[in-house]
Design a protein around this nucleic acid. Structure first.
Lengths: 250, 250
DNA sequence: TGGGTTTCTCAGGGAATTCACAGGCTCGCG
DNA sequence: CGCGAGCCTGTGAATTCCCTGAGAAACCCA
């Protein structure tokens, strides 16, 4: 189900070893494309539809392993799409996209069966992570729904419990700090520019100063690297990267 | 996917073994030509368009493997071009060109998946490097997105982590030093004139003295060659070249 | 509604980097 | 052997880039 490369980056495969298929349903074209491209880059096969009817049509022949579904669609509402989708593919997990101020209990109703949701405007890293979680849990036998654990050196990050430890010691992070660390840890030993980080960790409509990234790197360092061999490194003029703290080798 | 010529220069080939096709979209003619020339010299097949409409027309029949896209175009903005481009070629990676001070609000959310960007004024070597990265990663499965490693003798340069080692020992370089070394190492055993180096490693609007090149070669030697068989050589009146340090064959 | 938490802006300070300048050195040629 | 163009490199100034403290605004939870 999951293959690990020499670099430690993992690629998800479907039940039959073929790439996972994801259906994106959203009527905002720009958003739909942003999502599709991002998910493709994760190695998934992606199809998209702009409305409920289209979604059902595509789903029938594409047979997706997961669906990203905007709750508000031009022709029918999320509940209806979900219902008719489930009639044909009862087991497919769904990630809902919803406005921030959506009615709470309605979402609760929608996501009853192990589904999940993110609120707009979302961070791409968030969507990818949730979708990975859904797919992983849907594919694994109920007893074997293992947590997905990222590790770099003596630093570990549990994507399910949001637990972060360094050297066995638990560390509390805020949501943004966690997201940033996850992105770094999913790309160990790779220089990530501030703009790249901004694009993936902050919501797509963030219009603020680029130095929030610096700020949050600073926060992370205080919590992760304090009094220890530093793992978060600055490449001046290029960006940041995370790698195991080198033990002084003689 | 990558063939090595007798000189050690590597040439990229597309998925089908044919040369990689790149589409350049920029309305500044001088810049567009500069880019096209440079990319052609890399061994790629290049077409260009001055505006969004032209870009879409060319893309349709040229079927590029990658696109270099100026965010600001006369007829429509980068987002619109991107959207319509993606509708026809969903998987094509895009390298955005943007003004330095437009990073925050324009690019945020634009660089989905594997896309990337450079800010004007850029160094040609930077554009080529990023484009190579995009094409390489777009062709590879996510798990196989290995780092691209340049090596000359016992000197290695990792383009992902920006790590440079000689004889297993890590060496810290500044951004400009790194860029210069990369250019040298991508052209081992080949004499590069100071003018060539200036054109590729420094931004195209650099207006300073030509002896910055001498200066930075000097810096590099101190870090790379210090107390070791020299790898960076001067060809008086011609330029510089890098080659493996000869072991004294006495 | 109120207090604690989190996110983010702003600005000052500090350090790394870039670059010009200029004097000294070297190589190659006459 | 001596000269001059071309190259090397020390010095130092200006700049850019990054870090971080302080505080305002937004958010969350009871």
């Amino acid at each position: 189900m999951t293959a690990t490369s020499p670099q430690g980056r993992t690629e998800m495969l479907g039940p039959d070893g073929a790439p996972v298929r994801v259906l994106v349903v959203d009527d905002e074209q720009a958003l739909s494309e942003l999502l599709s491209m991002t998910l493709r880059y994760e190695g998934w096969e992606v199809r998209s539809a702009p409305d409920g009817e289209g979604a059902l049509r595509v789903a029938r022949e594409f047979r997706p392993d997961a669906v990203v579904l905007d709750v508000v669609l031009p022709d029918m509402d999320g509940t209806a799409v979900l219902g008719r989708l489930r009639r044909e593919r009862p087991e497919v997990p769904v990630l809902f996209l919803t406005a921030r101020d959506a009615i709470e209990d309605r979402i609760a109703g929608l996501t009853a069966g192990g589904d999940d949701y993110v609120t707009k405007p979302f961070a791409l890293e968030e969507v990818v992570a949730r979708l990975r979680g859904l797919i992983r849990r849907a594919g694994a036998a109920p007893a074997a729904r293992s947590a997905s654990l990222l590790a770099v050196g003596d630093l570990t990050l549990n994507e399910d419990s949001h637990e972060v430890c360094r050297g066995g010691q638990s560390i509390h992070l805020t949501a943004t700090e966690f997201e940033l660390l996850r992105y770094l840890m999913r790309n160990p030993r790779r220089v990530l520019s501030k703009a790249q980080i901004l694009d993936r960790v902050w919501s797509y409509d963030f219009g603020g100063q680029a130095n929030v990234v610096e700020l949050y790197v600073s926060y992370l360092r205080k919590k992760i690297d304090a009094g220890r061999p530093p793992m978060i490194h600055t490449r001046r003029g290029a960006g940041y990267l995370i790698k195991p703290g080198e033990q002084p080798t003689g």
